[in-house]
């Protein structure tokens, strides 16, 4: 199985990655090489094996229902590109 250039373009769009044509072609070949290796695990008999779902024996971790100070607004905004009146500013995404 191999991945087409259009599929690479589609995946890049899903991943919000702006790539030029040369990069798309490079990724097509690298993705195909990796997907070739992935065939190894497609052939394994995993019948009845449940998918791994957690990395420790923990289940249902609940936090106490307490309040504590959160990050001050100024600190939360200190690394933002554009802010105004204590908010992050982004371009309009909904047209009138």
């Amino acid at each position: 199985m191999s991945i087409s250039l259009d599929e690479v373009r589609h995946v890049a769009r899903l991943a919000r990655l702006e790539l030029d044509e040369a990069e798309l072609v490079a990724f097509q070949s690298e993705l195909n090489a990796l997907l070739g290796h992935f065939q190894d695990i497609r052939g394994i008999d995993v019948y009845g094996q449940s998918p791994h779902s957690r990395s420790s024996a923990l289940q249902n971790v609940w936090a106490d229902d307490d309040t504590w100070p959160s990050l001050p607004r100024g600190s939360a905004l200190q690394n933002a590109g554009v802010t105004k009146a204590g908010l992050f500013i982004v371009p309009t995404i909904i047209e009138e």
Binding site: I3, L14, A15, L17, E23, L35
Partner: peptide, 20 residues
């Protein structure tokens, strides 16, 4: 544009693999 221009090649490759 931010992600495409500022992530390095290996990071973009892994994001692409994972997204796929």
């Amino acid at each position: 544009a931010t992600r495409g221009q500022l992530f390095g090649h290996e990071v973009k490759l892994r994001i692409m693999v994972g997204t796929y």
